[in-house]
Structure formats: C-alpha cells, structure tokens
C-alpha cells in the first residue's frame, strides 16, 4: 500500500482526531487490509501519510495484538481465554483447535497457511462464553471443541475476504 492510498482513507476522518498521532491506528488498520499484515512498505506509507517516522509507526504497531508485523493465515481466529470463557471451557476449545491445526499451545498458523489461531483477552461476550472471533467479524459463541472445529472448517472452506479487516 502506498502513502496516497493511506491518505485517501484518513483524510476524511482526520477531523475526528484531536491529536495527529492518534491517526496512526486507523491508518495502520487500513494499511493492513491489503495483505493481512504490515510490511516495511506499509509502515513507511503510514509514516509518510501521518507525518511520523516509520520507526515510530512500527513501535505503535508492535504494541497491538491485532496489528501483524509478520504474515498470518488467510483467516485469524481469536479464542477468548479470559475468566468467563475459561470457566465455561475455553481451555478445552483452545487445546482442541491448536491440536487440529497442528500449532503449538501458544497458537500459530496452520501448515496450509489458511488459519491462524491466537489467544484473545476478554472479547465482551461473556454471556455467550466460550466465544470466538474470526478476524474483525462479530464474535460468536458459545462453542464446544467440536462446534469450534466446525466453525474453523467453514472459515477454511470460504473464499478469502476481499479486504483483511482485523
């Protein structure tokens, strides 16, 4: 993504941000929609468009879990592991998905490159615990290990999203 594309996205929302550096976040989220993660060029483009150094932009990106500085799978599956979900069986869901996708118990990307599994802290769906969110779509729940696996299989089979909003 280039700086002009980033500018075209943030210029209409510039007035909503009191501080110029606050624009870095929406700019990064938008820059990420192209490839699903941020490359060196994306960070430089965001730096140019927002007026901050690429190094500073990278430091911001590195702080957030949902901004990826390395390639991910086509779909990112966030499994909530915070208290309510944990009490309702999130650990079992997590372990089952990790085992099925062949990734370590810290999460990771499946061998076919289709799915990335990651832990999430509270997604605010405690009433539907244990819950799962695919990319930035609406969070769903409750899940059992089996229904979670079916959910991931459906994601794997579906065509890739046009833009990677995460």
């Amino acid at each position: 993504m280039n700086a002009d594309q980033v500018r075209a996205h943030i210029d209409p929302i510039r007035h909503e941000y009191a501080e110029a550096r606050s624009l870095i976040l929406p700019a990064l989220k938008f820059a990420q929609t192209e490839k699903g993660h941020l490359t060196r060029e994306d960070l430089e483009a965001v730096g140019e468009a927002t007026g901050f150094s690429a190094a500073y932009v990278e430091s911001v990106a590195s702080f957030y879990d949902r901004l990826y500085l390395a390639p991910t799978g086509a779909r990112v599956v966030s499994v909530c592991v915070t208290l309510s979900c944990m009490l309702r069986g999130a650990d079992e869901v997590w372990d089952h998905l990790c085992e099925r996708e062949g990734v370590s118990h810290h999460g990771g990307t499946s061998e076919d490159g289709r799915i990335t599994i990651q832990e999430a802290q509270c997604l605010g769906y405690c009433d539907r615990a244990p819950c799962i969110q695919a990319d930035a779509e609406e969070t769903k729940g409750p899940f059992t290990p089996g229904s979670a696996a079916a959910f991931v299989d459906a994601l794997r089979a579906a065509p890739d999203p046009h833009e990677f909003w995460r």
């Binding site: 190094a55 500073y56 430091s59 702080f63």
Partner: peptide, 8 residues
C-alpha cells in the same frame, strides 16, 4: 527518529 521502544 530512529530508536523506538517496541512491544509492551
């Protein structure tokens, strides 16, 4: 503008 603190 080169050095930054990354991660958290």
């Amino acid at each position: 503008g080169q050095l930054t603190m990354q991660e958290r």
